[in-house]
Design a protein around this nucleic acid. Structure first.
Length: 197
DNA sequence: AACATGATGATCT
DNA sequence: GATCATCATGTTC
């Protein structure tokens, strides 16, 4: 999988739209299709690695395809994918997912029944997958309990046409950059569907 | 002090 | 159903 991943943050954010993320639990596997991402690029004041490497953000500096997990607002875990060569700090936030398999597991993790609400939003996505700080720094391309996968049903090139772009959600620094990407028409993405094309 | 959010309840259609 | 205000809460620098 790593060989297929782009080594570029914006390319990664777009590439991940439509890809699958799987999480093994003792009782089964939950799988979702990524439908919304945000890029946090080099030189971006909104990126946690903007200033320098710190204990919190060090996973952003791992080789592309590793998890960076942090707590937002004291309530939610955020799951990101590192997106550049080792030593360069940047990543892609996974903001929403369409539940495909193991919905019972996600419902249990979320304490919510409605399919549409299981993973629409970055905190919900992480909770549905049972992701917390213990996943920070893990390799998402190594066949571990949390991993990225291609969609076997996808046909090369067909997803590209259906990706929309907008500004990122919930930030104040570098807020005007068009670095949010979403699968057009998906009811499982979390924000505006109609900014910037 | 600021923050890459979500649940809830109010109010409007 | 949409949209908005409010706030709980941990972690960072």
């Amino acid at each position: 999988m790593r060989a297929e991943l782009p080594v570029d943050t914006v390319a990664m954010a777009r590439f991940l739209i439509g890809k699958l993320i799987a999480r093994d639990f003792a009782t089964g596997t939950a799988v979702g299709r990524i439908v919304e991402t945000e890029a946090y690029v080099v030189g971006d004041a909104a990126c946690h690695a903007y200033r320098r490497m710190t204990p919190r953000n060090r996973s952003l500096f791992l080789e592309h395809g590793h998890a960076y997990v942090y707590r937002a607002y004291g309530v939610s875990w955020m799951l990101n994918v590192s997106s550049e060569i080792e030593g360069v700090g940047s990543g892609v936030l996974l903001r929403a997912m369409e539940p495909l398999h193991g919905l019972d597991l996600m419902r249990r993790n979320r304490g919510v029944d409605t399919t549409r609400d299981l993973a629409r939003g970055p905190g919900r996505l992480a909770m549905a997958l049972g992701v917390d700080r213990s996943f920070d720094g893990i390799d998402l391309c190594a066949g571990g309990p949390l991993r990225l996968a291609a969609d076997p049903r996808a046909i090369d090139g067909h997803e590209m046409a259906s990706i929309g772009t907008s500004v990122r959600i919930g930030i104040t620094k570098d807020a005007e950059r068009p670095l949010r990407f979403y699968l057009r028409g998906s009811v499982f993405s979390s924000g505006p569907r109609r900014l910037n094309v």
